[in-house]
């Protein structure tokens, strides 16, 4: 089994954004540019998530999806604010391969059954935003981690499977954007209790977090945002086309971002997982892609030196 490495692009209006605990969104640039960069450097899939769509009951993502799907040839999952079979159909027509649904599914679970029948289970990803409560239990939240539902996250995971979900995208709200590592307990408990693939999301801050969530928590795939976005911004030449005029990229380029988060590239992640003895997809053409200078790679991943 090759764990899938999936860059997750949170989108607000025309911009790629990133927040902490799904809040405090910071503009990073144009999502299509980041998407193309990730495609070219070996992403296994991509996820576009409209960060605020369900709050405002709108979805401004479709144009971006349409532009992206013309130039990337890996699976693209689109989520955020999808409420009906018509919304799902529109996303698929725009070029999405799968859709991720949270709020609408919790409001009306039958939507999962209807959608998986209509479009095929493999097209329907149920997104679970889980908040760890003080008593150690996990509650499913809606509206980008803002509103409680009173629904137990584990029970919801099983129910979503029964209704026909094809995959689960499990986000730990508490970890999200913090770089303190994925929630291993949350992911493992769900991954071991459902027969369908589980994508872990929220909290990756260093390379070893990725190995841990796959090996120790049985995740079938991992989502990454901050690590890759910060890495891309640092490594890519900033041209007017790449980045939005909004936001403060300079802040990130100068390393003034979140110091807890180790920025990296997809080839570095895959190289690291291979060195950990894990299977990993490397495209033959991407194998020819010239890696970062060795010194930089070593500085990023001191554990690699120890292993070598």
């Amino acid at each position: 089994m090759s764990p899938r490495i999936i860059p997750k692009l949170d989108i607000k209006g025309p911009n790629l954004v990133k927040g902490i605990h799904l809040e405090g969104l910071r503009v990073l640039g144009k999502p299509e540019c980041f998407a193309r960069h990730y495609y070219e450097t070996g992403a296994d899939e991509l996820i576009y998530m409209d960060a605020v769509a369900s709050l405002y009951g709108r979805n401004s993502l479709l144009e971006i999806v349409e532009r992206t799907s013309r130039e990337i040839f890996i699976p693209l999952t689109v989520g955020g604010g999808l409420r009906s079979l018509d919304d799902i159909r529109s996303a698929l027509r725009a070029g999405a391969d799968k859709v991720a649904i949270n709020t609408a599914a919790l409001q009306r679970p039958e939507l999962i059954r209807e959608a998986s029948r209509r479009f095929g289970s493999s097209t329907i990803v149920i997104s679970i935003e889980a908040m760890k409560l003080s008593d150690g239990s996990y509650e499913a939240y809606v509206n980008a981690g803002r509103d409680r539902t009173g629904v137990d996250a584990f029970e919801w995971a099983l129910r979503a499977c029964e209704l026909g979900a094809g995959e689960l995208l499990v986000t730990s709200i508490r970890q999200e954007g913090t770089g303190t590592g994925y929630d291993l307990a949350l992911t493992r408990r769900i991954a071991e209790s459902v027969p369908i693939p589980v994508i872990a999301c929220g909290g990756a801050g260093k390379l070893s977090d990725i190995a841990a969530i796959v090996r120790d928590a049985r995740a079938d795939a991992v989502c990454l945002a901050s690590m890759l976005h910060y890495g891309a911004i640092k490594r890519r030449p900033v041209t007017a086309g790449n980045f939005s005029r909004e936001g403060n990229i300079e802040f990130l380029r100068q390393g003034l971002g979140f110091s807890r988060i180790q920025d990296c590239s997809l080839p570095e992640i895959k190289q690291y997982l291979l060195q950990c003895g894990m299977d990993c997809r490397v495209d033959t053409e991407q194998a020819l892609w010239s890696p970062e200078p060795e010194t930089e790679l070593q500085a990023l991943t001191p554990s690699l030196q120890a292993a070598g």
Binding site: M1, S2, P3, R4, D44, S121, S122, G166, E167, P195, I196, P197, R215, R218, D220, A221, R281
Partner: peptide, 15 residues
């Protein structure tokens, strides 16, 4: 059966 776990059905991903 994977090296350390039962694998999921459907198979979703790169092979």
């Amino acid at each position: 059966q994977g090296p350390d776990r039962m694998l999921k059905v459907p198979e979703v991903g790169w092979n």
